[in-house]
Amino acid sequence: MQVPDFILRQPATLQEAITAAQEASRPPDGSHAPSAPEQGYDWLGGGTDLLCNYKWRINQRPVVIALRGVAELQSDVAGSLAAGRTLWQLENDAEIQRRYPALASTAALVASPLIRRSATLGGNLHLDTRCWHFNQTAEWRAAHRSCLKAEADQCRVLPDPGDVCVAAYCGDLAPVLIAYGAVARLHGPDGERRVPLAEYFAGDGIRRFAERRRAELMVAVEMPADAEDWRVNYRKLRLRQTFDFPEGGVAVGLQWESGNPGVIAAARIATTAYASVPLLHPEVVELLQGQLLDQDLADRAGALLESLVQPMKNTSMSPSYRRKMARVLCRRALLDCSPHSSS
């Protein structure tokens, strides 16, 4: 297996990175007409996902901009986590373990220890969507003649998909950060802007970000000031205890009524691997708000979530099982939040 040729850019500063992206997305004739974002380049964090896709000749770009050397992405500033932090750092940082324990424990559930040494926070949040008909070798895809997200103009998952891709978003960290109420800090040619992570992901398996702009990249994830007041838990469905992407993942965040632990003042529920983007579930939030968290409430919330998620037949476990497990994951994640739970 070989990585195909590409031009590697290794900027040292944020500005250099943005300039490299602007150059790469400029049409070859030198004009300044805007082109689709990301058409000409990929950002490279740890490379643990992107380069595997490249080896399979999946959507490779002519230019790869490696972010490891960009100083601004490597160190946290107050209240935020730098996008270049490795998952291993998130997992083992004593302050993250204390302030955002679910973030540290979730980082430890991603892939394998070896991969977590390279993989980054920014890379994990921007993980490409996955599908059994997409994450295959070039020869396999050619034989199968399918996949909107790759070379073909048809989809083998949905009989009549139009141009909608249903590849699944399989990042573990996004739902957890959404449950904490985290905000993405983006930097581009027009300067910096902030977008709540809950609003950052949108679209389908191909068009995955709400307002991603040309040559823009995520610099950091801001944790809100009240993040430590939230009880957050994440449950992941997978076959093996390591390596595997989630086949379903449920993150819950709860805030107790003041002076009344166990009674839910506010809730956030986010799932991963059930759709092309991490999903929020306001129906479940509505059910939970103002209620005392007990077994019955957790059961009902799980049942409601099961009725809401609609996984597709494009990962190794069946959609029916993954949906049923949403109930179990949700209930367990909720009960783990209860004031009497050890976790």
Binding site: S112, L239, R240, D244, F245
Partner: peptide, 13 residues
Amino acid sequence: GSLLDYKIPAPPD
């Protein structure tokens, strides 16, 4: 046909 999708048990399993 890949070692990600063909699930050989890992050490924690």
